[in-house]
């Protein structure tokens, strides 16, 4: 549910990193912040935490201007993963334009992943979003650890779902940009459908993604 102010020529998009507690949502944002050049992005805003656990949300904003002058702000949020913060998750998820589900690859976390995904489906319905139309990607994080679900298992479980699945290790940055890029592609496609970004605003997908993901030379 995009926020679009035609008079002001501003558009605000909301992307949400969802997933079970400790699956690495905040780490994904920290890595994005490190990997993406300062030009065009804002600072990572980490709201007050308790023992390094997110209790409100983290926010990494991006800003770009289309060739015709349309200002677009992309806000990437994380939700708190702990079960008890469900009301916060609902509030953050409301009006999301895209969701990245960050799963924990460890076999011991399979049940938590499933529970969190169910919670996502439930809350998407609660905030009035059609899950079939919502751009969604899945990331299996923590591939650097031992005792994780195998690639074959992930393929078996997700190949038929029609959802892009990425394997990542957010701690060392592997797979973080790929996940984000894939989600941005889907978000762009859904936006282009509704607001004719390419036709009316001369903003192509490459430009859109290129403006947001400017890889930091130092980090790369």
């Amino acid at each position: 549910m995009i926020e679009y102010d035609e008079q002001d020529r501003r558009m605000t998009l909301k992307i949400v990193y969802y997933g079970p507690a400790m699956s690495g949502k905040t780490t994904n944002l920290l890595r994005l912040h490190d990997l993406i050049s300062r030009e065009g992005r804002g600072e990572l805003m980490v709201l007050d935490t308790k023992d390094d656990r997110t209790i409100y949300f983290d926010l990494l904003p991006f800003f770009l201007v289309a060739p015709d002058g349309l200002k677009i702000k992309v806000k990437v949020f994380t939700v708190p993963g702990q079960v008890c913060h469900d009301a916060t998750r609902k509030a953050v998820l409301a009006r999301a334009d895209g969701v990245a589900f960050i799963a924990d690859s460890r076999t011991s976390e399979a049940a938590n992943n499933a529970e969190s995904f169910e919670n996502l489906e439930k809350n998407i319905a609660f905030v009035g979003i059609d899950i079939d139309k919502l751009p969604l990607v899945v990331q299996f994080n923590k591939r650097d650890l031992q005792d994780i679900v195998s690639d074959e298992e992930i393929g078996r479980a997700w190949s038929t779902a029609g959802i892009p699945v990425f394997k990542a290790s957010a701690l060392d940055g592997r797979g973080v940009l790929e996940t984000f890029r894939s989600l941005l592609e889907k978000v762009y496609a859904s936006l282009d459908c509704r607001y004719k970004l390419a036709e009316d605003h001369r903003l192509t997908q490459e430009m859109f993604i290129g403006a947001i993901i400017k890889v930091n030379d130092e980090a790369a």
Binding site: E3, R10, T12, K14, F57, K73, K75, F77, K90, A91, V92, A94, R95, F126, V127, G128
Partner: peptide
């Protein structure tokens, strides 16, 4: 009733 009215992403 089953729709959320409270959003936190309005522009500052």
């Amino acid at each position: 009733k089953d729709h959320l009215d409270f959003v936190v992403d309005s522009e500052i």
